[in-house]
Design a protein around this nucleic acid. Structure first.
Length: 547
DNA sequence: GCCGTTTTCGGCCCGACTGTTTTCAGTCG
């Protein structure tokens, strides 16, 4: 069964081919549908099974029919026919930065060039000199782009990997001075699983100074373009970063605009047009007069919409919802009052316990659960040293409940690991392919499931958790749920565990990324396990319920 | 190909930047 990503890629390829063939509006229609499917937080096959493909924005009769064929057979006749219309290498040309469909089509039809290698040959042979529209600079630009085209060019990176980069860039720019306000926009702000580039917005009285400093940051490999309001650089890692300087009166409009998503913005602009307004990155305009734009709320307010959290801006119905009134609150960092999954070092002592307890106090957590023993796949793991266990048993902090967890493999932990009567169990499958256990491990009646083991595993574990009164951890990495998995958990009534990061070093992105995923899944405070819920998910709480 | 308080046809976001141009086309986001 094809995945959402494969279906999105299919539609994108069709759009590329139609582009090269010179179609006018179809390519954008296919891309729109492709983006919708990519941002779907549910299995496309499920939507199809319910007969609801047409409810996906940008999917009409024709594309729905093609999706059904692709889902059923893994192929699409229409795509195969289109592929025969253009040389295969032409589509690779589209991936060269600066080369678009118009240029690729001209190379193909006017020069007989059918791919990147042939184009490089043609440039070397001087066959582009004298061709209308291709001066020396353009030719050199293309030559350099062809030479630089590597496997990593344009690849998206996990958002957790983007966090430290973003922090260094912001710190570097601040240190250079001349900046009043600085924010990150784009898919990073929307909390997407991966980001393709970073969009940085600043206000400054001295843009030139900011651009100079930006281009000189140590991580910057190349300044790709620089104008009066924006500068684009490529980092040593290959990640592209756009820096824009905007005036304070337009900051909200720019932040809104560059946060996207594209489809969200197109929808907003069409609403604006219907009202005789115009929205762009400089503000909201009635005629020549700017009537808003200093804040995002002004932009949404001009359309009588409630402010929409960035994580929801995917044109998936959030605009209609915001027209009816304020959106239901999403979980906030301050709602994360419980930590369930702290691992201490194997040789942990009193000080390690005290350190994490102090951190939990500082974060005002109400519940702190520490793994006291792992009984992993290959037999019982080490329990915490006695000194740490004793400290854990004796420490008293007003308002902070301490919990003891045992982490076990899917077949259940060895009896002696559970003999210490933990408050709850963290279930950990041995491999990505692992199936959920048939029944809850012995001992405590409830479990927190972490380490779900990849995309395919997520759905099985969500079902398992639903049947066993368990909650599931969300966050970065294949061992936790992403936003798609989190949404399926939420709609199945399975509570989410969001790591607080209380045991992690400053700047570790795990908690922020996890919170973003939960929010993208539409999770409110009550969808996430907090301190007030901890009792219901632990032994003592279960005992109380029975009593 | 999609879509609709302009709904079954006729539109389709909009601006920055670059290179090649005497006013614009192509690409990108």
């Amino acid at each position: 069964m094809p995945t959402n990503a494969e279906a999105a890629e299919l539609l994108r390829e069709i759009a590329d081919i139609l582009d090269v063939l010179g179609e006018r509006f179809k390519p954008e229609a296919y891309r729109r549908a492709s983006r919708s499917i990519e941002s779907l937080t549910e299995d496309l096959a499920h939507v199809a099974a319910r007969g609801e493909l047409r409810t996906i924005p940008g999917v009409g009769d024709a594309i729905a029919e093609k999706l059904r064929e692709f889902l059923a057979t893994g192929r699409l006749d229409y795509r195969d026919r289109l592929r025969r219309e253009v040389p295969p290498g032409i589509l690779e040309l589209l991936r060269v930065p600066g080369l678009g469909p118009k240029t690729a089509r001209r190379f193909w039809l006017e020069l007989g060039v059918e791919g990147p290698a042939e184009l490089a040959d043609a440039i070397r042979a001087g066959r582009l000199t004298g061709v209308a529209g291709f001066g020396p600079k353009k030719v050199e630009q293309i030559r350099a782009a062809l030479a630089a085209a590597g496997p990593s060019a344009g690849a998206r990176i996990p958002i957790a990997a983007a966090y430290p980069i973003a922090e260094r860039l912001v710190a570097g720019l601040r240190a250079a001075g001349g900046i009043e306000q600085i924010e990150i926009a784009g898919s990073f702000r929307r909390g997407r699983e991966t980001v393709g580039d970073l969009d940085v917005l600043v206000t400054s009285a001295d843009p030139e100074r900011v651009f100079d400093a930006f281009g000189r940051l140590p991580e910057v490999r190349e300044v790709r373009l620089r104008g009066a309001t924006k500068e684009t650089v490529v980092l040593a890692s290959g990640l592209q970063v756009d820096l824009r300087v905007v005036e304070p009166a337009a900051f909200g409009a720019a932040w809104q605009y560059f946060t996207g998503s594209k489809d969200h913005n197109v929808h907003l602009r069409s609403l604006a047009r219907d009202r005789g307004l115009k929205i762009n990155e400089y503000g909201v305009f009635r005629g020549e007069a700017r009537i808003g734009g200093r804040t995002e709320a002004e932009v949404y307010g001009a359309l009588d919409l409630a402010w929409i959290p960035p994580e929801l801006r995917e044109d998936r119905g959030e605009i209609d919802a915001a027209a009816k009134g304020p959106l239901p609150p999403l979980v906030e960092r301050t709602d994360l009052t419980a930590e369930f999954h702290v691992h201490l070092p194997p040789d942990a002592g009193v000080r390690d316990v005290d350190r994490v307890v102090a951190a939990a106090r500082a974060r005002k957590l109400g519940y702190l659960g520490i793994v006291v023993a792992s009984a992993a796949v290959d037999g019982p793991g080490p329990a915490l040293p006695k000194a740490a266990l004793d400290r854990l048993a004796s420490v008293r902090v007003p308002g902070l409940a301490l919990g003891r967890a045992v982490e076990v493999g899917p077949a259940g932990g060895p009896p002696d690991a559970l003999a210490g009567r933990p408050d709850y169990v963290i279930v950990r499958p041995p491999a990505a392919s692992a199936n959920p256990p048939e029944a809850s491990p012995g001992g405590p009646p409830v479990a927190i499931v972490a380490h779900v083991g990849g995309d395919e595993g997520a759905r099985r574990w969500v079902a398992w958790a639903g049947a066993h009164h368990a909650a599931i951890e969300v966050g970065p990495g294949s061992e936790r749920l992403d936003s798609t998995g989190a949404r399926s958990a939420r709609t199945s009534g399975v509570r989410l565990v969001v790591p607080t990061g209380v045991d992690l070093p400053d700047g570790d992105p795990t908690s922020a990324v996890a919170l973003g995923f939960a929010r993208r899944a539409g999770a409110g405070p009550h969808d996430v396990l907090g301190a007030a819920d901890a009792a219901g998910f632990t032994r003592s709480g279960a005992a109380r319920r029975r009593a």
